[in-house]
Structure formats: structure tokens, C-alpha cells
């Protein structure tokens, strides 16, 4: 599996750079446009979560890596903050009406729903969130 990694500070100002990096990698794989957009949204949610919560005392580093083969494309977002599994956040409210609707938890919901498989692991002092797309499900394959 070919893998590329981008290291940057955990700041939303870096969002465009992160998304472009993932998009470049995706364009070298067989990921179709619709699933690429979905994965980019899931990756934004993961990156923005790290920016918002991983380093409450200041700035820290984020590692974003992409890897793909003929059968799958994966993105990993890693931070060096305290141990935290973002996938432990409960499912959000997706039913109440406009005035009662809360937005909390929606980002994690997108991470789960817009990837085929999302998993968390703690390794070498890093929180690592992996989002995987199965290329066999590509909508352009007949």
C-alpha cells in the first residue's frame, strides 16, 4: 500500500491544505467523485475535532496520512493529545424540529456514515482515527 503523510499544526486555518492533500491522494486512486466528497467531509470533521479539542493548552501537531490499494482507500488523522476516542461519542439527535435541533455529535456521525469503516486506536502516544473506503463499492463499477 502506498502511503503519504502530511504534518501540520492543529488549526482550522490549515483545513484547506489538509483537504487538498487528501484530494490529491484520492485523485491517484480509483475513488469516484461522490465517495471522495463524502470522505473529504468525514476527514474535515476528524481534523476540526482535533483542532477544537486535542490541545486545550495551545497548539499541537496533526498527522494526516492517506494510503490506497486497488481495493481500498484510507485516511488516518492522528494527534498527540490526551487519550480520547472520538467514536465513543453517542449518536446525535437527527429528529427534533428546527428550534430544538442541536448540532453536537453530527461531525462524528458523518465520520461513521461517510466512510465504510471508522476505527480508533491509541498507539505511540497518539490518538489515531482511521476512515476506510472500500473501492469495490465504487458507484462507477458496473
Amino acid at each position: 500500500m502506498h502511503r503519504d503523510t502530511l504534518s501540520c499544526i492543529a488549526s482550522v486555518e490549515k483545513l484547506e491544505e489538509v483537504i487538498s492533500f487528501i484530494e490529491d491522494c484520492a485523485d491517484h486512486s480509483k475513488l469516484d467523485m461522490k465517495r471522495k466528497m463524502g470522505l473529504l467531509i468525514a476527514a474535515e470533521e476528524a481534523f476540526v475535532n482535533v483542532c477544537s479539542y486535542a490541545y486545550p493548552d495551545g497548539l499541537g501537531e496533526v498527522l494526516v496520512s492517506c494510503a490506497f490499494s486497488n481495493t481500498e482507500f484510507e485516511v488516518e488523522v492522528a494527534d498527540f493529545g490526551r487519550e480520547f476516542d472520538v467514536l465513543s461519542i453517542p449518536e446525535p439527535d437527527t429528529e427534533s424540529d428546527i428550534m430544538d435541533r442541536q448540532i453536537g455529535g453530527l461531525g462524528v456521525h458523518f465520520i461513521r456514515k461517510l466512510s465504510d469503516e471508522a476505527s480508533y486506536r491509541r498507539e505511540h502516544g497518539q490518538n489515531i482515527l482511521k476512515m476506510k473506503i472500500n473501492l469495490a463499492f465504487n458507484s462507477d463499477i458496473i
Binding site: M37, I41, I98, I103, L106, G107, H109
Partner: peptide, 20 residues
């Protein structure tokens, strides 16, 4: 519009609540 994340939904919801 090609792309919208939860931050976009948050903005849509905030303006809709205000208008309501």
C-alpha cells in the same frame, strides 16, 4: 455547492432559527 460539513449545517441551522 459541492460540499457541506457539519460546520455548514450549523450555520444553516443558526440562520433558520433566527429567521423563525
Amino acid at each position: 455547492l459541492d460540499y457541506i460539513s457539519s460546520a455548514g449545517l450549523r450555520a444553516l441551522l443558526a440562520t433558520a432559527k433566527k429567521l423563525k
